[in-house]
């Protein structure tokens, strides 16, 4: 039962990732694209966790945590760049 549920969830998350990609391509403004990238990052965390569940392996946790950290830092850096034209003040 659980395996099928995990597969369905993987499908749902992929649909979400496709919607994010559409928004990333459509824009229309730069903040929209950054928001879409940020959401893609978070969805990638979910996909990694689901893969870890599917393969019943605990090793994917570190990758998910690193992705969470990197995604946040990336979003903050690009948003700051849009605000100030400069990342490090």
């Amino acid at each position: 039962m659980l395996e099928n549920v995990i597969l369905i969830s993987l499908g749902i998350m992929s649909a979400a990732a496709i919607l994010n990609t559409l928004r990333l391509l459509a824009g229309p403004d730069l903040p929209d694209r950054i928001l879409a990238l940020d959401t893609l990052y978070i969805n990638a965390i979910a996909l990694i966790i689901l893969l870890g569940l599917y393969l019943a392996s605990d090793l994917f946790f570190e990758a998910a945590l690193l992705l969470a950290v990197m995604g946040f830092v990336g979003t903050v850096a690009v948003a700051k760049h849009l605000m100030r034209g400069d990342i490090i003040e």
Binding site: V5, I8, D29, L35, T39
Partner: peptide, 26 residues
């Protein structure tokens, strides 16, 4: 329990992405 948590979680994430796609302004 795990199946319910995973399903609701991915559905909420899908709703978030639907909102990202269909709402009209930033």
């Amino acid at each position: 329990v795990v199946a319910a948590l995973i399903l609701t979680g991915s559905l909420f994430a899908l709703i978030g992405s639907i909102g990202l796609w269909k709402l009209p302004d930033f």
